[in-house]
């Protein structure tokens, strides 16, 4: 465990909590893509099946349980409790265009052709693109609430910190996971445009709105 990995995990946790609190406090999930949140719930479910097969550490187990529980709570708030505020008309990204190719790829390119490993690979690939419905929704409506941009910032920062963690681990532990690294690079690149807008607009006190 190095500082980049730890801050990455905490950044991920911050993102998840920010989103949950935003929805809970405002009693509304306006501007949030339920499809992205469903994909993240699927990501955590397929990745953390190893909770049943291997124990890494108390930290590892607790964080996995927290991530899974929070992602299901978020999906529940969007599709059940605050369903009336869910902006489904703008959440029109076709998720099958992500899930089907990612599913196929995880069968073709993986570390080991075993059920759990294929599901882990699927979750890594799916996570890298799971934010696309949310970004698509923002590009469609042309704006995002500031709190939503904080969520996106921490969610993007998390994988960027993991990239530094992987460089660190490569040099100091000889650890290298090509699948995670390539997917992590793709995932981080998808946030670059958003990071630019976040720094140039939101951090200067302006609302994130896109030119028409």
């Amino acid at each position: 465990m190095n500082i980049f990995r730890l801050t990455g995990d905490l950044s991920h946790l911050a993102a998840i909590i920010i989103l949950l609190l935003k929805i809970w406090k405002t009693r509304s999930c306006a501007g949030i893509s339920g499809k992205s949140q469903l994909l993240f719930a699927l990501v955590f479910t397929t990745r953390y099946l190893d909770l049943f097969t291997s124990f890494i550490s108390l930290y590892n187990t607790s964080m996995k349980l927290i991530y899974v529980a929070c992602s299901y709570a978020t999906v529940y708030l969007i599709y059940m409790k605050f369903k009336a505020t869910y902006d489904g008309n703008h959440d029109t990204f076709r998720v099958e265009f992500l899930v089907v190719p990612v599913g196929g790829l995880s069968f073709l390119v993986n570390h080991d052709f075993s059920p759990l490993e294929i599901l882990w690979t699927f979750s890594i690939y799916l996570e890298s693109v799971a934010i696309l419905p949310q970004l698509f929704m923002i590009s469609k409506t042309g704006e995002a609430e500031t709190i939503t941009t904080h969520y996106l910032f921490f969610l993007g920062l998390y994988r960027a910190l993991y990239l530094i963690n992987w460089i660190w681990r490569y040099y100091f532990e000889g650890f290298f996971d090509l699948i995670a690294v390539v997917a992590g690079v793709v995932q981080t690149i998808l946030y670059c445009d958003f990071f630019y807008l976040y720094v140039t607009k939101v951090l200067k006190g302006k609302k994130l709105s896109l030119p028409a």
Binding site: D50, S54, I56, N60, Y67, D112, E117, W120
Partner: peptide, 10 residues
Amino acid sequence: HALNIPHDEL
């Protein structure tokens, strides 16, 4: 053959 490859990251 292990049941799965241990992944220590989240």
